[in-house]
Simulated scan of single mutants.
Amino acid sequence: MPDIEYPAVGGGAYEYAPTAGPVAGAAGRLLSYRIAVERDIAGISPAGFAEAVEAVFADPRSWPGTGQWRLRRAGTGERFDFTIYLVTPATRDRLCHSSFDRYTSCRNGDSVVINVARWVHGVPDYGADLVTYRQYVINHETGHRLYHGHELCPGPGRPAPVMQQQTLGLHGCTANAWPIVDGRSYAGRSGQYDDPLPRDP
């Protein structure tokens, strides 16, 4: 797999995955999404990013596994409900319109925004590999689009809820990428921590 390279500031132009994908999930409301990758990012194509996203949603531990949602990637010219972006840090700030940190990812309206810096580097002291972090960030930000807010760690040593801001800290929980744990929907109390924002080197 080629290395992914990107500037801190991208031009804000995108390439979209052109083909439709299969429906993930057997029951629940159907939402369609499209995949967009900022053109300044090298080493990952829209099709490659779409494949990674689809693999997350196809996992029975992801949101379609709850029975509340079915998710399908829209092709060119098809209607869609939201867009999942992979973008440079500065474009993250433009799309998110919040915190302007160039570090986190976000959801803003119908935009699920993944910061390529987190996609490439993950976060320090996460306690799991980069694949797990990528699964987490897709499920977390998509979870916001599915009307879920932030949640708190339910107790030391327990899995972090997927809607906990694991990018900023685990607060005694262990890293967890999924909204379903041990075959059941898994969540913590509503709320968020006042964690400082890390900075990329």
Rank of each mutant, 00 (worst) to 15 (best):
V87D: 00
A55S: 08
Y85M: 00
W69S: 04
R34W: 06
A42T: 09
W69Y: 01
R34I: 08
R79T: 05
P60W: 01
A36W: 07
S98M: 11
A27H: 14
R70D: 09
V23N: 10
F49C: 10
V53C: 04
A36R: 01
R92A: 13
R61A: 13
D40R: 03
G21S: 06
T91M: 14
H97D: 14
E51R: 07
G25I: 03
Y14L: 01
G43Q: 10
L30R: 15
W69I: 03
L30H: 13
I41G: 08
R92D: 15
F80L: 06
G77P: 08
S98L: 09
E54T: 10
E78P: 09
F80T: 05
V56M: 06
P18Y: 11
E78S: 06
G77M: 05
T66P: 02
Y85N: 03
R79F: 09
R73Y: 03
V37R: 04
G25T: 01
G65L: 04
P22K: 13
A58D: 06
G21P: 12
E78M: 07
A42H: 11
D93H: 10
R70H: 14
Y14F: 04
G25K: 06
R73L: 08
V53I: 10
R29V: 14
R70T: 12
R61W: 14
A17Y: 00
A42N: 11
G28T: 09
A47Y: 00
P22F: 14
A90R: 11
P64R: 09
A74H: 11
A17K: 03
A58K: 09
R29L: 12
E51F: 00
G67Y: 00
F100N: 11
I44D: 14
A42E: 14
A52K: 13
S98Y: 12
E15R: 08
G48Q: 06
T83Y: 13
G43F: 15
A17Q: 04
A50G: 12
A20F: 04
G67I: 00
A47K: 09
A52F: 10
V53E: 09
P60C: 06
A55H: 11
A50D: 04
I35R: 04
G67P: 00
I35F: 03
Y16D: 05
G25E: 01
D81S: 11
L30S: 11
G43K: 11
G25C: 05
G67M: 03
I35V: 12
D40I: 01
T88F: 12
R29K: 15
A52W: 11
T76A: 08
F100L: 11
R34C: 07
S32M: 10
R79I: 00
P46D: 15
R34L: 08
A42S: 13
V23Y: 07
L31M: 13
R70A: 11
F49L: 14
T19H: 02
G21W: 10
S45M: 04
I41N: 09
G43H: 15
V23P: 05
G65I: 04
T88N: 10
T66Y: 02
V87F: 00
A52N: 10
